[in-house]
Amino acid sequence: MEKSLTGGRFLLVTILNVVITIFELLGGLLSGSLSLLSDAFHNLGDALSVVMSYVAHRVGGRQQTRQNTFGYRRAEILAALLNAAVLILVSLLLAVEAVRRLLHPEPVKGDIMLLVAVVSFLANLFSTILLNHGAQHNLNIRATYLHLLSDALASVGVIIGAILITIWQISWVDPLITVLVALYIIYESWPIIKQTFDILMEGSPDLDYEAIAQDICQLPEVDGVHHLHAWLIDENNVVFSVHVNMENLTLSNIEPIYRQIEALLCRKYGVNHVTIQAECRRGKDESLFYDQNDWRHE
């Protein structure tokens, strides 16, 4: 987490969201506004999301141990997945209730709705500003930031709806806004679900593996590359392993080639951790990516 994203900022964002939640719950009950009540539940989720995000980051920053040799960075990926999944679930439930309200409109007090929505928007906007920088480089913070941004957008929709209700008394605008915001939140949350799931399933990062193989093969003494593996610890840390065919060299001659390969992968492809297995002729004719049947022919 960036230095600017201190525990104090997370605490401030959490307190803001708890206050907004109580304020919107009361405002929603007094005005009869579903969009305010839905915004209140989103804000409650935001407060829990911020706490979860901060705890996950603290766990993720712990040093590696004998039981977790890659460290604990996946804690943040799990938190991001859970945050996004909860956000989608809550949005679906509120969308269902909004459809019911569209079919059976209920009276809404636009003036109370407007006042609460404006205060909520300003508070949510301030919270998103506090977390904006870290959201650019961290899935965990990005998921939390999305919670806050979605609430800020929801508040804008509620403000518009409150104005329309106050002027023209069209109460069906309230559940309509709830549906639109819910759909937008689901649309924005799905990529986080997909990316975190790919990381947890050891999916390969988006690299040009054919180009990597060609670059390695252009190094002196390298005759071939096979059994390449790459996966992500989190969205920023790539782990890479590969078998490299070389001439029959001594270990002291192989180590400089290892360093060249590591420097190439780090500088050009952003790989953080490299494991190389040198071989003379073994596996030279095998595929670039591991085939579980290859061992049967060795």
Rank of each mutant, 00 (worst) to 15 (best):
K268D: 15
I170Y: 12
H133G: 04
L92I: 14
T196G: 01
N237V: 14
E262V: 15
H226N: 04
L180I: 05
G8R: 14
D208A: 10
L114I: 01
L131S: 09
L5E: 05
I163C: 06
R66N: 04
D206P: 01
L125Q: 02
N17I: 07
L176Y: 03
L5Y: 08
V274C: 12
S49V: 01
I165P: 05
G71Q: 04
G224I: 12
Q169E: 13
I185V: 15
P191F: 00
T196A: 11
H297Y: 11
V271A: 12
L103D: 00
C266P: 00
A230P: 04
H227C: 05
R58C: 01
V239S: 10
L103H: 01
G283W: 08
Q260A: 11
T128V: 14
G61V: 01
R259H: 09
Q292D: 14
R259S: 09
W190C: 08
T250V: 07
I199R: 10
V118W: 03
I276Y: 15
M246N: 08
H104K: 13
G203C: 03
N68I: 00
I167K: 13
Y258H: 13
I261N: 11
F23W: 12
I112Y: 07
V50K: 07
V116C: 08
N237H: 15
F126N: 04
A278T: 15
L89A: 14
N124Y: 05
A213E: 08
I88L: 11
T128K: 05
Y209T: 12
S252P: 00
D291A: 06
Q136M: 02
L148W: 06
V181D: 02
R66P: 00
L82W: 13
V108G: 02
N68L: 06
L228V: 02
G27R: 03
A85H: 04
E247N: 15
